[in-house]
Design a protein around this nucleic acid. Structure first.
Length: 508
DNA sequence: TTCCGACAGTGGGGTCGCAAT
DNA sequence: ATTGCGACCCCACTATCGGAA
């Protein structure tokens, strides 16, 4: 199949706003792609590469060669070149990679170039990714989408699932089994503003588990072999020897467990997330790092124990089997209750202990990966500050032409100025985007650079955030974590904004 | 007819590994 | 040694579609 066939379908999907229409376009193409190119087509049309990453980003994609006139590139051609691009390494690799990227784009038409640019940049923006592609695979193969979804859970990679469905229908999908040593798509949590709302969503009574601010891990063990995967299914076995040893110490030698690794201080309180993340992603001199900053692991689910798959069992049963398999010290602390005030007290206690919050879990739900469904609901406390808008950046995509990303500052009484604490683009409605674009242009002091408009520091905005972290980037040495806009405060002036000292007092 | 679950899009800060400067 | 880039760890929120109620 030619790349241009895929590109045309992608364009049709982009033009179509109805989800069912998108699914129709995608399914039509899946109906005519050859078996040997099905994985590539599914991959591209769900916004990813079969190679996952190839070491090419926005910078490498500057200064591309002129386009060809005739569209002759096949999916196989393009895929082969991308594999070569991925494989280069060592001295001179950047130049070599650039040469191959140039070669790739020189073989494409303008239309194809535009598509590959977005695909490689990770911003397909056609309004269809995995979720829509699942439905398209179901439609094209005649299999129920629930079967596609379940196979994806077990296999962790949609193109392989889609190709199997197109070739062998529902039977091929049902042949996918949990395989020890190959990562499963992890189950994700939705969120709720407070404990009462979360209990209502999950259905009382529910389990309340500590939400630890660490790195999600999935541990597989077959005999003496242990492998550990992250949320995006990357293998981090070598970075977490503590976890490997802990799993090898268990009685069952055929299992898959879900949990979190976190760096704890000697007093048991958690280190800042940055410390855990640094440990979990460092590959060099792990033994020394381990001595200085040991990782602890806490499991909260069991997908397989003693060679038996548990995904379809209710959470409460999986918990029983987990507790029989894992020593108490490796279990995520939890209670089961339907009582709101008891749950709220537990929440207060876990926050006092320095942790992130709670995950409220339905006792009945199976392990349904991928969807941020109703089964698991996280609750975290929320801080707020009144900050001053120092500048704003022009948005992209559907925010094109709107000033979108706000630079936030706290008041510094000593200097009489403002100290930048980070940016945010979250929490803005279309209406607010329109309003703030107009208002910002009135306050504009001129462009700071190509994307940024500097403002007179007059506008006060109420910002919600999860915490204050140490920052190597911002002048105050601190930055807000997960900042989002709650509302503008026209009743306040810049002199009423919160101060740097207030922010500093929130940093741990 | 209204409501709500699921999805895609729009980006945030921090850190590491690797290659180039 | 330092810098730039790509990748991935954590992530919140709104708009929209379409099935459920």
């Amino acid at each position: 199949m030619l790349l241009i066939d895929v590109v045309r379908v992608s364009e049709a999907v982009t033009r179509t706003s109805a989800r069912l229409g998108k699914i129709g376009h995608l399914a039509e193409l899946l109906g005519r792609v050859g078996a040997d190119e099905a994985e590539i087509a599914i991959s591209y049309l769900s916004g990813e590469l079969p190679q996952r990453q190839v070491g090419v980003g926005w910078r490498t994609l500057q200064d591309l060669p002129p386009a060809k006139l005739a569209a002759t590139a096949t999916l196989t051609d393009v895929d082969a070149l991308l594999s070569r691009i991925k494989s280069v390494s060592g001295q001179g690799s950047q130049a070599a990679r650039r040469t191959l990227v140039t070669q790739l784009f020189a073989g494409l038409t303008t239309q194809e170039q535009a598509f590959m640019l977005r695909l490689l940049g990770g911003e397909l923006r056609q309004g269809a990714l995995d979720g829509v592609m699942i439905e398209a695979i179901a439609k094209a193969s005649g299999a129920p989408s629930a079967d596609v979804r379940r196979a994806l859970t077990l296999r962790g990679w949609l193109p392989a699932v889609g190709a199997a469905a197109l070739a062998g229908g529902v039977e091929a999908l049902r042949a996918f089994k949990l395989e020890v040593g190959r990562a499963v798509s992890p189950m994700l949590a939705g969120s709720a503003p407070n404990i009462a709302a979360a209990l209502e969503k999950a259905g009382a009574p529910a389990a309340l588990e500590w939400k630890l601010d660490g790195v999600r891990v999935q541990a597989h063990r077959s005999g003496d072999q242990v492998r550990v995967f992250t949320r995006t299914l990357d293998d981090i076995t070598a970075q977490v020897p503590e976890l490997v040893e802990a799993v090898l110490g268990l009685a069952s030698d055929d299992l898959v467990l879900d949990g979190e690794v976190i760096a704890l201080r000697p007093d048991g309180r958690p280190h800042p997330f940055q410390v855990t993340a640094s440990r979990a992603s460092s590959k060099t001199d792990v033994p020394r790092l381990r001595e200085r900053t040991p990782l602890s692991v806490f499991f909260f689910d069991a997908l397989r124990v003693n060679g038996t798959d548990l995904l379809d069992l209710p959470y409460s049963l999986r918990q029983e089997l987990l507790a029989e398999t894992v020593i108490p010290g490796l279990l995520t602390p939890r209670i089961v209750t339907g009582d709101v005030s008891e749950a709220e007290k537990y929440f207060t206690d876990v926050i006092k202990a320095g942790h992130e919050g709670l995950v409220v879990k339905s006792l009945a739900s199976p392990y349904a990966a991928g969807r941020r469904g109703a089964g698991w609901i996280k609750v975290k406390p929320r801080h707020t500050l009144d900050l001053v808008v120092l500048a704003a950046e022009w948005g992209h995509g559907r925010r094109e032409g709107k000033l979108s990303n706000l630079h936030l500052g706290a008041r510094d009484p000593e200097s009489g100025g403002f100290v930048m604490l980070g940016k945010t683009f979250k929490g803005l409605t279309d209406e607010l985007l329109t309003w703030q674009t107009e208002r910002f242009l009135e306050l504009a002091e001129g462009p700071a650079d190509e994307w940024t408009v500097k403002l007179r520091p007059e506008l006060v905005v109420e910002i919600a955030f999860d915490g204050v972290q140490r920052s190597p980037r911002y002048p105050g040495g601190m930055a807000l974590r997960f900042a989002r806009v709650l509302r503008y405060r026209p009743d306040k002036r810049a002199v009423d904004a919160d101060t740097v000292e207030t922010v500093r007092s929130l940093m741990f």
